[in-house]
Simulated scan of single mutants.
Amino acid sequence: MWRTRSKLLFTAGALISGFALTQMGMYAGQHLFGWKLNFNVFQICRSLLENYGIGYMVDALSGLVLLTFGIAVCEAVRQCMATRAAFRKLHRMRDLPLTEALGERYRELGADRIWVIEYARPAAFTMGLWKRRIVLSSALLSVLDKQEEEAVIYHEAYHMKHYDPLKTWLLQMCAILLFYLPVLRHITSLYKTAREILADNEAILRTGSPVGIGSALLKLLSMTPANACLVHSAARSSFAETSINYRISRILDPQQEQIIPMPWRSIMFSGYVLVMLTLMFALALM
């Protein structure tokens, strides 16, 4: 069920974002490069505003498109630079003996996929957009038993295998760019929860018991100060940052299923924005 929810959430976010951004791209291409496009929502908005003599709104529409793509480019560059800087920092912090030992123990995950860093606080996360790494701190490994260690690594291996840092970052960026569609923020939040639950399920399946993942979560939470974060800006999927209370209660009671509250206000407002664009499109064709 959670796998289906995850796919539906990502698909919904991608379709909504893709529609709006594609229309913006077509609008920008028509005015910057002279593309001949007959059907474009943003171009129709511009034509209607010009017909009604609201010139300043035309400039605002163009400014919105320009600002959206400007922020997108800046955020993409910033994220790539932040991820690269974080990898350099973590590379210098590696505990080579422990890294080699875990790499040998979990060879099925691939060469150089697990980094153990010398860090005084517990940490476990998967980082990277294309070249992903599982990062664990020596402080965390020192308090985990074998079953807990396997649970944490298989949890993070799920994120690594399915490009979760990249996909979550894309949804988060679209939610920021298309701020006037608040439903995207709720989709992103629910998607992150779904991915963590699926990663927990993978750990339980691989270890054969929910005990390891549950006790590892509790240990990590009890040892981690509030707002403590080793890497702030780089895209990552962290072991203990999302929906902790629900994940723990679900591990204790596997039959429990979350009733997802529907963000009706956000859905209605976002739907209103999309309907208005559609109506403008229809009026222009009459």
Rank of each mutant, 00 (worst) to 15 (best):
L32S: 09
S222H: 14
G34S: 08
L98G: 14
L140I: 10
H162S: 05
I267F: 15
V41W: 06
Q43P: 00
A226C: 07
V41Y: 12
A111L: 11
E150R: 07
V135G: 02
D145S: 13
R78H: 14
C229H: 01
R78L: 11
S6C: 03
A216C: 14
A139Q: 03
H31K: 10
D145R: 01
S243L: 03
G53K: 08
M268E: 11
E241W: 01
V152H: 07
G212P: 07
I259M: 09
A85L: 08
T193A: 02
C45P: 00
M280S: 13
Q23S: 15
V116L: 06
A101V: 09
I114K: 03
G208T: 12
I244P: 01
H162F: 14
Q79D: 10
I259F: 04
I114L: 06
L252V: 09
R92K: 10
V211F: 09
L49Q: 05
S233T: 06
T126V: 12
L279C: 15
Y246Q: 01
T224A: 05
L67A: 08
Q30K: 06
G25R: 02
A82G: 03
T188M: 04
Q172T: 00
N51K: 13
V275A: 15
Q147N: 13
K219Y: 15
N201Y: 10
E202Y: 06
T126C: 14
A228L: 11
R92W: 05
L170N: 00
R105D: 05
A101P: 08
A28V: 10
N245R: 04
T126R: 01
R105H: 03
S233M: 06
C45N: 04
Q43L: 13
S137A: 08
P225Y: 02
E118A: 09
M1E: 06
R265Q: 12
L64P: 01
T242N: 14
A28R: 02
S270L: 05
L102A: 02
T11V: 14
I54P: 00
A157S: 08
Y154P: 00
M268L: 15
M173A: 15
A60P: 05
Y119K: 09
Q79H: 13
E148K: 01
D59C: 11
T99I: 05
W130R: 05
Q147F: 03
L8I: 05
Y246E: 04
L49T: 12
A14Y: 10
M262Y: 11
G55T: 09
N227V: 06
V231G: 01
R195P: 03
E156K: 05
G70T: 08
K89E: 10
W130H: 07
L198R: 07
N245C: 06
H31F: 11
L98Q: 15
E196C: 09
Y158P: 03
Y106A: 00
V65K: 00
C45I: 07
S249Q: 11
V152Q: 05
D200Q: 03
Y158L: 08
N51W: 10
L48S: 07
R236Y: 07
S138N: 09
Y154R: 02
H159A: 11
I197Q: 10
Q172P: 01
L129D: 12
C80E: 09
M26H: 10
E196Y: 03
G13N: 05
W264Q: 04
A139M: 10
P122C: 11
R5T: 02
L221G: 13
N40M: 06
D95L: 02
E241C: 03
